[in-house]
């Protein structure tokens, strides 16, 4: 246990020293918030009495889950594998699972820190919808999303050999999810064929779920979304199981 805590603390420092991680996880989402928020923030939202910004906050938090998975975790695992750091852990008596757990915990930290930051900045600039039960539910949903998307990141890391190739692969996963799952713009305004594509993206269901609970919906009314997410989690676990590699 002590070993695991020391590893987590060690990795935490390494993550904080990586300015790319800090930019993508803690600066980029706030830039998006300010840019899109200042354009559409006060426009009326999907539901009565709510504004665009109220749906945008949970969507950005969900985006953080996928970006930490496909960028941060994916690339860090490749770097650690190719330089032989993973091998160093394997010749030491720490369990392999602990190494993956430590990275996952850094990922969860980044997702939650990003969420808190987004909510605080949004609250400072706009008059936003907020309630504590919704906040806790949103956090629970984000953790649920981490379960599947982090495995996707680990799985992707098995496919590429260099961080450069990994970034390319990450973009292929990230950008369709960003534009087609209703994060910055509602799916309704997309052309019909894109709306069809959107229905096939697990990310769309994740965004839907995050927005739903944040805006005060009951978790029980999102059965479809939860079922899709659960199925996606199983697929990602399997992918990670078969694709993740410890050795070059």
């Amino acid at each position: 246990m002590n070993a695991l805590l020391r590893l987590i603390a060690f990795d935490f420092r390494l993550y904080l020293r990586d300015w790319l991680t800090i930019f993508w996880m803690l600066i980029y989402p706030v830039l998006m918030l300010i840019i899109f928020g200042s354009m559409f923030g006060n426009q009326p939202g999907a539901e009565e009495g709510l504004k665009y910004i109220d749906s945008y906050i949970p969507a950005l938090c969900a985006m953080n889950v996928i970006s930490v998975s496909v960028f941060t975790l994916n690339i860090n695992m490749i770097t650690q594998r190719e330089s032989g750091i993973l091998r160093r852990y394997r010749v030491s008596p720490i369990r392999s699972a602990s190494v993956l757990l430590s990275h996952s915990i850094q990922g969860v930290f980044l997702v939650l820190a990003g969420a808190i930051e987004i909510i605080l900045v949004a609250n400072f600039v706009w008059d936003i919808h907020f309630s504590f039960p919704s906040l806790l539910l949103l956090f629970a949903c984000l953790l649920f999303g981490c379960l599947s998307f982090f495995c996707l990141g680990f799985a992707l890391s098995g496919l590429a050999k260099t961080p450069g190739a990994a970034s390319g692969l990450a973009m292929i996963v990230f950008f369709p999810s960003l534009f087609l799952s209703g994060i910055s713009m509602p799916v309704d305004i997309l052309p019909t064929f894109m709306q069809k594509l959107s229905q096939w993206l697990p990310m769309s269901y994740f965004v839907e779920l995050a927005q739903g609970v944040w805006l005060g919906g009951s978790i029980t009314s999102f059965g479809t979304e939860l079922a899709v997410m659960l199925g996606f989690a199983v697929v990602c676990w399997l992918l990670a199981f078969f694709l993740f590699r410890w050795e070059k």
């Binding site: 060690f10 420092r13 390494l14 020293r17 990586d18 650690q80 330089s83 032989g84 750091i85 091998r87 160093r88």
Partner: peptide
Amino acid sequence: ATSMPEKA
């Protein structure tokens, strides 16, 4: 010698 995190 490469198998150590560079930022540590």
